Simulated scan of single mutants.
Amino acid sequence: MEKRLRQRAVLPVVAACATAAVVGTPVAVAAPDGTFAPTAASVAIGHLVATTGVDPARAAHVLAVQRAGAVRIHDLDRRLGARAAGGYLDPRTGSAVVNVLDAPSAELVRAAGATPRAVRYGTAELKSVQAALELVPNTSAGLDPRSDQVVLTVSDAAPPEQAAGLLDAARGFGDRVRVERARGVFRPLVYDGDEISDGQSVCSAGFNSNKGGQNYIIDAGHCAQGLPYWQGIGPTEDARFPGTDYSLIRNDSGDAPGAVNLYDGSTQPIAKAGDATVGEQICKSGRTTQVTCGSVQALNETVDYGDGQTVRGMVKTDTHADHGDSGGPWYDGSTGLGMTGAGDTVSVTWFQPLTAAIAAYGVALNP
């Protein structure tokens, strides 16, 4: 009986974005390109009101405009090139703030409709500091453009002597590094003790995609180690973990909608992929914690889980997730952002950027 229950636990997860026909297709809620479906919007607005103090109407406005601001930030980052210093979204307005190192950069940012903010350090310098920090298990480091710093996160589960050495090295970089504390072990969010190769493991499906007339699911790499066959779906064709954290599962079920299960009979349509931005209000879906929302805290994070498992290029959030949510989709309205990677199951969760997986596999998201 235990095996049967666990198999059934996997199927609704896959139905979240891939094979809803297996267990009954959720009723889609119409949502125009760029907007949150009602269920996700309600959770995201609640988070924004609680963390910023804005009223619900202002929070709804932030959700409506923030993706345009995020696109503007990433475009300006590319245009500034070596002069780039990062950018973030103002959580109270959703507008783009772009860090600058000189007057010409400020003029460029203003002309593009964003707000320039003078900072001391640029992206290149902070990345060099990040690379110099030799992480130990249960620590991470990434860039926070809001403070113009590298944020070093150290869990209380980190080996004490190694953590002390890392913190001592961090102090040598002065105000270029900020230390934050976390609780618990950093690890991929798959149920402990389950073996993904035997069909028992509980993960969540990511994003439906296609290439050459074949449907696929983009998922977390750590879920698909050993290239298991997913019951009712199909085989895993590729899995990459550690280093990065994405996989490609062949979807032979005949059902692959471009929508995310919101676990109340409705779905969030996904129209395109995009890159996350610090300060962006985002949501995730997963079979364990269902729909939870929060904000992006840092980009390009390197996370050390221990045992030689280090992943780079992750996005750090303050959103709750738990075991079984691994692989589940993260989104800003109809823009897909990534797949759940790891966390401390309390308040820190990382996701693998979706755009990197799409580029690696040459697939397109399903409409």
Rank of each mutant, 00 (worst) to 15 (best):
W230C: 07
L189Y: 01
A164E: 11
N138K: 02
S197Q: 13
G172F: 01
S155C: 07
L143V: 09
A163V: 10
E180N: 10
Y216F: 15
R176C: 12
R146Y: 03
G199K: 12
V179L: 08
Q231L: 13
G193L: 12
A131Y: 05
S140I: 00
D144K: 00
D192E: 15
W230Y: 14
Q130M: 12
A164H: 04
R183E: 12
D175E: 11
Q214I: 15
I217W: 00
R187N: 14
S201R: 11
Q162F: 02
V129Q: 13
E237F: 02
D194L: 15
E195G: 13
V136K: 09
D198W: 00
R178E: 12
Q149C: 10
S147R: 14
A141P: 05
G221S: 06
L166N: 03
G212P: 07
S209D: 09
L166P: 06
L167K: 05
V136H: 06
T153G: 09
R183F: 01
G206L: 01
E180P: 03
P235K: 03
D198F: 01
D219P: 02
R187Q: 14
I196M: 11
P235C: 00
G184V: 08
A220P: 02
T123F: 09
K127M: 14
D148A: 10
S128L: 13
